[in-house]
């Protein structure tokens, strides 16, 4: 599980196998550049994240090389 921070909040990315019909789902190409950078850094892990903001919200599922649910840490 990877961890990133967003405007004071800690977020984790959890890989999921399925998506609920009421989920908010975004493709990775919908993320802004900063969020994209943080997202992949968090996925790959081990990288220090110094940015302060993303446009990711807890509960959102992001479609990348897998499906990842953004969760509050």
């Amino acid at each position: 599980m990877a961890t990133t921070t967003s405007t004071g909040r800690s977020l984790t990315l959890r890989r999921v196998d399925s998506v609920a019909p009421d989920a908010t789902v975004r493709h990775i190409d919908q993320l802004d550049d900063r969020s994209l950078e943080l997202f992949y850094a968090a996925l790959e892990g081990g990288r220090r994240l110094t940015a302060t903001g993303t446009d990711l919200e807890p509960g959102t599922v992001v479609v990348a090389t897998g499906y990842y649910r953004v969760e509050a840490a």
Partner: peptide, 19 residues
């Protein structure tokens, strides 16, 4: 609708509603 997610529906991985 989210045109860049419809391929996930075609793959059988994503239900219709979130699209």
């Amino acid at each position: 609708y989210n045109r860049i997610l419809i391929k996930e529906h075609a793959k059988g991985k994503l239900p219709e509603a979130p699209i």
